[in-house]
């Protein structure tokens, strides 16, 4: 299963990471590597756009939890946007929906970063 990752610098010191595809055991390491690079940069905020992610498993959730932990240690904002119903449901089952900063759109997520 292919996964596409694309990061885009925003003018306000933020960077968006758009993920397309399914995040499972075969692809979560790519997401993790990408996030690792982004946290090494000097952006003040990282917004992960999951609008085109149709499936996520526990390895994908674990990767995003790692991102959240990195955001705490690096003092960067870490926000999620565009959770499809399946993805949102997995976050809810794991009781993580309120742990992350979740927004409906990139525009909203980029406000006030």
């Amino acid at each position: 299963m292919n996964i596409e990752l694309e990061s885009s610098q925003k003018g306000n010191g933020a960077v968006t990471l758009t993920i397309k595809g399914e995040i499972d055991m075969s692809s979560s390491s790519k997401v993790r590597a990408h996030l690792t690079d982004l946290f090494k940069g000097n952006q003040s905020a990282i917004v992960v756009d999951l609008s085109d992610v149709s499936y996520i498993d526990s390895s994908g959730i674990a990767t995003l939890v790692e991102g959240l932990q990195w955001s705490h240690t690096s003092n960067k904002k870490f926000r999620l946007t565009g959770l499809a119903p399946m993805v949102k449901d997995v976050f809810e089952i794991a009781r993580l929906l309120t742990v992350f900063e979740v927004y409906d759109s990139q525009e909203e997520a980029l406000k006030g970063v």
């Binding site: 498993d57 526990s58 959730i61 674990a62 990767t63 939890v65 790692e66 959240l68 932990q69 997995v90 089952i93 794991a94 993580l96 742990v99």
Partner: peptide
Amino acid sequence: KIEPGGLGTYF
């Protein structure tokens, strides 16, 4: 505890 991993069996 919010930590990566260990959720598969929980699901």
